[in-house]
């Protein structure tokens, strides 16, 4: 549905986005995750045709955004970071204006009522947008994006400024919309992406540093996946039982805890030993007091990845400096000092 290839946006000598490529299939919800200033909004602005890329292409619904802007844009509903609202209009006037702007051929009154109901703004329909709270304004912006039920929704930080209850509502709404729409959602709030998006693209300093499901990203970052278990049973017998369970590679005893023993279990690749572990222990009637794996949270993955990217950039800079130093002959350097 959305194809982004080799996208680059340069402001002077600074790259806001460099060589970013990804594609989003129909009905997929993709989360763009990155710290402030990573280039998320720039990518979204290019996809929606607000900005043009220095290099690279974007196609939406099979239409190139530069060659067929009208057709491509008709596929997209866009909620920018700051909702584009006319504060002097009422909600109804604004949505009616957006409806005409999108050249929709639906029953206007009915459709606007439907959309308002979806995002929960029926009770403020006749109020001036300038008098509404931040949460309502955000939802009016979202209603604008939903007008015409476009196949692609681009939502830039859609839950900013909402209270916790509204955040949950909007997240549920987005999940629900994901059944019929292709959605790209940006956020710097990790739990939000984890809650809503089956797939995450992490952006750091204009580059993609990871692409995958939150779970697979966490898996790929976790070195030596382990299970920690606290088992109330005789030490040596427990050890031999654990070693017999299919899929267990190695067992290590970590010491006594709560009158029981704590064990670190290293499973074979991709093997899930939790179920056999549970049944084996229950047959012996040895209670399992605690079980946890060491999978990283998305937050940890993100911090690790951004730290790694920064470290690589630092090393590259040092390498370049060293090369520059090597290029200068020692004689010249001495002359300069004199």
């Amino acid at each position: 549905m959305i194809e982004v290839k080799g996208l680059t946006k340069r402001y002077g000598v600074k790259y806001a986005v460099e060589d970013v490529s990804f594609s989003v299939g129909e009905g997929e919800i993709l989360g763009l995750l990155g710290p402030n200033g990573a280039g998320k909004s720039t990518i979204m602005n290019i996809i929606t045709g607000y900005l043009s890329a220095t290099d690279g292409t974007v196609t939406v619904g099979g239409y190139d955004i530069l060659e067929h802007p009208g057709k491509a844009k008709a596929h997209i509903g866009y909620l920018p970071e700051q909702p584009p609202l006319y504060l002097d209009m009422t909600v109804e006037e604004y949505l009616s204006f957006s409806f005409q702007l999108k050249k929709l051929r639906l029953n206007k009154g009915e459709h606007i009522r439907e959309v308002c109901q979806k995002v929960g703004i029926e009770e403020v329909q006749s109020r001036r947008i300038g008098n509404l709270s931040r949460g309502y304004r955000q939802r009016v912006g979202l209603a604008q994006a939903l007008l015409g039920s476009p196949p692609v929704l681009i939502l830039d930080e859609p839950t900013v400024g909402l209270d916790p209850r509204q955040i949950t509502d909007i997240r549920n709404l987005i999940k629900d919309l994901g059944k019929q729409h292709t959605i790209i959602l940006s956020s710097h709030i990790l739990p939000e992406v984890q809650a809503v998006c089956p797939r995450v693209v992490m952006i750091h300093q204009g580059h993609i540093i990871a692409d995958g499901s939150p779970h697979s990203l966490a898996n790929s970052m976790t070195v030596g996946r382990r299970l920690y278990a606290r088992i109330d049973g005789p030490k040596e017998q427990v050890r031999s039982l654990l070693e017999q369970i299919a899929g267990v590679e190695e067992v290590e005893e970590l010491g006594p805890r709560e009158g029981a023993f704590e064990w670190a279990i290293l499973p074979k690749e991709e093997a899930d030993v939790r179920r056999p572990l549970f049944f084996a222990l229950s047959r012996k009637r040895w209670p399992l007091l605690f079980l946890q794996d060491n999978e990283m949270s998305l937050e940890e993955v993100f911090l690790a990845l951004t730290a790694r990217a920064e470290e690589q950039a630092r090393l590259a800079a040092i390498e370049m400096r060293d090369e520059d130093l090597e290029d200068e002959s020692p004689g010249e350097a001495e002359e300069e000092i004199v």
Binding site: Y50, K73, Y78, P80, P84, L85, Y86, S98, L101
Partner: peptide
Amino acid sequence: RSKTDQLLLTSPLS
């Protein structure tokens, strides 16, 4: 100033 140009420029309007 109010960024409503984003609404206009991302709509199918030329």
